[in-house]
């Protein structure tokens, strides 16, 4: 569908020395409650990293810190080489973010959404026009450029939202439950887009409730009560825990009392 863009490929080569995300002892407290409790992990350029955990485990808080929206209480993290504590603006310019819940404006056309986000990301008109045509072509959406986004099937919307989050060629992209509700073929097409993006050097951090989807990641972490309870390749994580499936491991971590 697409080849690596020269800039992204170059970034991958030059940035491979230091991680796309580097969190050390990252902590966030709300009053007496510790939502994120000294988590340490890194994500390499071009890596697909699964960020898993139950509802309320601290994933969302950690994501908000890593995207520069929330300051940590302790510890440190850099994203795309910038400190989350002191360089939040630079981080937001160098990351992409896509969520199942909100990404595009339903009442704007495909083209208007692309142009709007291109402007937000500070791209000039010529660059926006060039990338817009490439994007429409790659997604096979050229004939629908003037359609309202609200009229597109969910799967197309998700692929468009992902591509828009990559318009400014960020070094790290955050995907928050990107593929809910779509059919299995559309879901796989989406993962192929993720792989293409990662192969071009962009680091991808993805949260999901589909444990089978975690198996698509190069590495993953599982958060429990604010801490990282397991981390590694899907295979390593299963083997270290002595379980056949991630489902089994999840159950053991979330409900220590319950025998599987």
């Amino acid at each position: 569908m697409t080849g690596p863009s020269p800039r992204a490929a170059g970034a991958a080569a030059s940035a491979s020395a230091h991680p796309a995300i580097d969190a050390v002892g990252l902590t966030r407290r709300f009053g007496l409650f510790t939502a994120v409790d000294a988590i340490t992990f890194h994500v390499a350029p071009g890596e697909v990293f699964g960020f898993l955990g139950a509802n309320g485990a601290g994933k969302t808080t950690a994501m908000r810190i890593l995207t520069g929206l929330l300051a940590p209480s302790a510890g440190s993290a850099t994203v795309a080489g910038f400190s989350v504590a002191t360089e939040a603006r630079e981080i937001r310019r160098n990351i992409g973010y896509m969520s199942q819940k909100f990404s595009l404006y339903d009442d704007l056309t495909v083209r208007e959404n692309i142009d709007f986000y291109g402007g937000i990301y500070g791209l000039d008109d010529a660059t926006i026009a060039e990338r817009r045509e490439l994007l429409l072509d790659r997604l096979g959406l050229a004939s629908r450029a003037r359609a309202l986004v609200g009229t597109l099937p969910l799967g197309w919307k998700q692929q468009l939202a992902f591509s828009v989050a990559l318009l400014h060629e960020p070094r790290v992209v955050f995907l928050d439950e990107p593929t809910g509700g779509v059919d299995p073929i559309t879901r796989r097409r989406f993962w192929e887009l993720i792989y293409e993006t990662a192969a071009a050097g962009t680091a991808v951090l993805v949260t999901t409730h589909y444990l089978d989807e975690a198996e698509y990641c190069d590495r993953l972490s599982i958060m429990v009560d604010g801490r990282i309870a397991a981390m590694g390749t899907p295979e390593d994580v299963r083997r270290d825990a002595g379980v056949a499936t991630l489902d089994e491991l999840f159950l053991r971590l979330m409900r220590p009392g319950a025998a599987a």
């Binding site: 796989r188 792989y195 192969a199 989807e213």
Partner: peptide
């Protein structure tokens, strides 16, 4: 890594007897 997966996917889709090839974890 992602590049290896994409390469394998593309190669398998060229196979003359491939009805479908999809990533599965």
């Amino acid at each position: 890594g992602a590049a290896v997966r994409i390469g394998l996917l593309a190669a398998l889709r060229e196979h003359p007897d491939a009805a479908s090839v999809w990533p599965f974890g």
